[in-house]
Structures are given as structure tokens and as C-alpha cells.
Amino acid sequence: MTSQLNTFNYRHFVPNLTMGAPVIKSLRKHTNAYLDCHLMVTNPLDYVEPLGDAGASGFTFHVEVSRENWPELVKKIKSKGMRPGVSLRPGTPIEEVYPLVEGENPVEMVLVMTVEPGFGGQKFMPEMMEKVRVLRAKYPSLDIEVDGGLGPSTIDMAASAGANCIVAGSSVFGSPEPAQVILHMRKSVEDVQNSN
């Protein structure tokens, strides 16, 4: 398991779009960082090739869409050299991701949304940590990511529940000391991992 703090979001089943493949391609020229793309789109299959060609590292789609072509989607993501992940909204039962984790061609990460997708700056939903705990107990080596309302005051809850990949936006970019916020969150996740 690894900790990571990089992410880019596509949002089409929500009303806004954050960054596209051209931005990923531009960033890839300047970094070897893990570029984790979270797509909140109704047809993620359309984005696999452009993001893979741009140099994305991870491709996370929502369990709520593309049910009819999950196996094809995961296979195509892997064929483009990206790690497949699946995300779920707060109202979606955790059991819905099990077929994707346990399938013949499984995803490698589950992203638990800790806010409703669509807009930054929302309040962290601590009740979502039960989903993280259930996933960690069922799949001890799975990468589990949390996204939404993560910052210095919520990171310990997420790390203790079993999250090892953290997405943080407002708490980092809204801080006068973003590097300190990142270091604090990374240390929290690493301390929990090292104690297990």
C-alpha cells in the first residue's frame, strides 16, 4: 500500500469539469508524480484513451455508471498502463464495489467519497468512515482512497479507519502553509500504516 496526495477530477454527472487530458499531458512533461484521475462522468470509457495517452497514472470511475461495461472498462484502463479504481458517492452502499474488487480483472483502488461530488469546500462526512473500515477489514491490501473535506482536523479519522490514499483540495490550497498541511496528512497516514 502507498500513500498518495495527487488527483485530478473530471465531472460530468455533476455540473463542472476540472481538468482535461491536455493539462495532464503538460504536467507529465515536468513530473514523475502519480497523476490520479477521478472521473465523475456518465461514459468513462470515452476518456480512457485520451488520459492514457496524456500520461495519467490512475483512472477512477464511479460505480454508479457504466454497469453494463465494467469488465471492458477495467481491461481498457489497464491496457493503457493506468491503475483502475472505482469510486462511490456517499449514498451508494459499499457492497456495490465488491464485484469490481473481486472480479476476474479487478480494480486496484476504491475511492470512498466523504462529501457529495461536485464542489470543493464541503464538510467531511464522518459516517463514511464505516465504509472505509468495512473495506479495510474485507480487503487488507487494497488501496482505499478518501476524497472530500480532508484536512488536518479530519485526516486522523480517515487514516485510523484504514484509508491510505488521501485527496485534499481546499485544505491544501486554502492554507497559508500548504506544504505543512500535506506533510501533516501524509504523516498521519504513514503513522497508522507503520503501526499495523
Rank of each mutant, 00 (worst) to 15 (best):
E130S: 06
P140R: 10
G81C: 04
D143V: 05
P50T: 05
V63P: 00
I77P: 08
R89Y: 06
G85C: 08
M125Q: 12
M129G: 04
D147S: 04
R136W: 04
F119R: 07
V181L: 06
E108Q: 15
M109I: 11
K80G: 04
E96K: 06
M129I: 10
V146L: 08
G151H: 12
E127L: 06
P126D: 08
S79P: 15
T114G: 09
E127G: 07
R133Q: 11
P93L: 10
F8L: 14
D156L: 12
T42K: 11
G174P: 13
V112P: 11
R83L: 07
Y98L: 00
Q4K: 06
G81W: 08
D191Y: 08
K80N: 10
E72L: 05
P44A: 01
N194L: 12
V74Q: 02
G120E: 11
I144A: 00
K25E: 11
A33E: 09
F13G: 00
E49F: 00
F61M: 04
F13I: 15
E130D: 15
G52S: 10
E116I: 00
Y47V: 01
E95M: 02
L100H: 05
A168G: 05
T7Q: 14
K78F: 10
E177C: 01
P15C: 01
V172P: 12
A179P: 01
N164F: 10
E49M: 03
S160A: 15
V134N: 00
T7D: 01
A33H: 14
L17G: 08
V192P: 09
M157G: 11
D36F: 07
Y139V: 00
N69C: 10
E64R: 13
V97E: 05
N9C: 05
P50F: 09
Q193F: 11
R136M: 02
G148K: 04
L39I: 14
K78Q: 12
D46G: 01
S188M: 07
L5G: 06
T31I: 03
G121S: 04
G118I: 05
I182T: 07
T2Y: 13
E116N: 15
T92K: 07
L73F: 06
G85H: 06
V74F: 04
G149E: 11
T31L: 03
N194P: 01
F173H: 12
V14I: 13
S57M: 01
L27I: 14
N69W: 10
G85L: 03
N164H: 12
E190I: 09
N196H: 14
M109K: 15
V110D: 02
G118Y: 09
R67T: 13
G81A: 05
F119Y: 14
S3H: 15
R136E: 00
D46H: 14
N9H: 12
V146W: 08
S141P: 00
S141E: 11
A161H: 06
K131I: 05
P90N: 05
V101G: 03
T154H: 03
A179R: 13
V23I: 15
G91Y: 14
V48F: 03
L39N: 02
R83V: 10
M113G: 09
S175D: 06
L150M: 15
L27Q: 01
I94N: 01
E108Y: 06
R89N: 15
A179G: 13
F61C: 01
T18A: 14
Y139N: 00
G120N: 11
A179Q: 08
T7H: 14
V146G: 09
L100I: 08
E127T: 13
L142Y: 07
E104K: 02
S195C: 04
I77S: 02
Y47E: 12
